[in-house]
């Protein structure tokens, strides 16, 4: 028998581990990834591989040669970043865009802050926004969803939000635009027919991932649900007041990166608040900003910016939103 072990209590540990949590996120992303591969074929696969490989490589190189610390590539967190970034790219984007985005995501947004757990912003979103600003053409050339593994044609469509945005600028009303594009029904978008980023193809696939994350107790529902409620309420009010200019709640919930963003990006542990109270404020903030950017900003899509802006408030939310303490509220 080897020497007895002595340590302070507790002497057992739960099944949770960082790797397990990250693996669960990857599993939850699987349906969305499969759907994107189905609709966008080889190029989506190429982007996915580029993103994941670059993220892992960049993290490995930085840890090995710059920080000279232990290499933590295997904790899967950089793979999650890679997959999320790939899902946030237009499916027809060239491969080098994916590589640059991944370098920015890991190298600048994550590792320069000190690695896992230290970053202020969600790395995948920083990568995406960086690309959006640097390569606006490549990042807004959309492909309409195709069937299984067709080669991607030069045919370019537009995202539902962009269609609405352009239409409104040219003077049409929401109703006219929707009538001109029969594909833009909520039911269609739910089951994958919307053009857009690779991960936005199917809302159902994302919701399956959400349910999986909840069942595995990886995330709490607070952030996504408050985002949805806020967006629904705000867009509802706007569209009731002026249905010609503002789209309705269902349309807004199911388009753009809202589902992807609210389920997978806003709930990123590192860049979201820890307490329920903080999470609710965070979710409401993202919802409000998203709607404001969509309706009044120059970008048709607002979730990325909304999440990044709210990421900034997390330290403050953590400082002021304390959990419910025992022994301070109810007395006797």
């Amino acid at each position: 028998m080897s020497k007895t072990i002595v340590s302070p209590a507790p002497h057992v540990h739960s099944e949770f581990s960082t790797v397990r949590l990250m693996r669960d996120v990857l599993i939850a992303l699987a349906p969305a990834v499969l759907v994107s591969l189905y609709f966008y074929g080889w190029n989506a696969l190429l982007l996915l591989v580029c993103c994941v490989a670059t993220c892992m490589a960049v993290q490995y190189l930085i840890e090995k040669f710059m920080l000279k610390c232990s290499v933590t590539v295997m904790d899967c967190s950089c793979i999650v970043t890679g997959v999320l970034l790939a899902l946030n790219l237009p499916p027809a984007a060239p491969w080098w865009v994916a590589v640059i985005g991944s370098i920015v995501a890991i190298g600048i947004a994550k590792m320069s802050f000190g690695g896992l757990g230290q970053n202020v912003f969600n790395p995948a979103l920083v990568g995406r926004v960086f690309l959006l600003i640097s390569f606006p053409v490549a990042m807004t050339t959309w492909t309409a969803p195709q069937s299984w593994f067709h080669s991607v044609d030069a045919f370019s469509g537009a995202t539902p939000l962009a269609l609405i945005n352009e239409g409104l600028h040219s003077g049409s009303t929401v109703q006219e635009i929707l009538a001109a594009n029969p594909d833009l029904t909520p039911a269609q978008m739910l089951f994958a027919r919307a053009g857009g980023s690779a991960g936005e193809a199917s809302v159902i696939a994302l919701l399956i991932g959400f349910v999986y994350l909840l069942c595995r107790r990886v995330i709490k529902p607070h952030i996504p649900v408050t985002i949805w409620i806020t967006v629904a309420v705000m867009t509802g009010i706007f569209s009731l007041c002026n249905p010609a200019e503002y789209t309705g709640p269902l349309f807004n919930l199911f388009t753009g990166g809202l589902m992807l963003g609210s389920i997978f990006m806003a709930t990123d542990y590192v860049t979201s608040p820890m307490t329920n109270k903080g999470m609710i404020i965070f979710g409401v903030g993202i919802g409000v900003l998203t709607v404001l950017i969509r309706f009044f900003g120059s970008y048709p899509e607002g979730v990325s910016f909304a999440i990044l802006i709210m990421n900034l408030t997390v330290p403050l939310l953590n400082k002021y939103c304390k959990p419910v303490r025992y022994g301070y509220g109810r007395r006797k």
Binding site: I5, H11, H13, G115, L116, G117, Y269, M274, T275, P323
Partner: peptide, 27 residues
Amino acid sequence: EEQTRRKPEGNCIRCGKCTEACPMGLE
């Protein structure tokens, strides 16, 4: 040993699980 040996310490990923688990509502 398998049941009790502590695993190597990693970075805090600020998941908030400790806050959620604390019966005294601490962080």
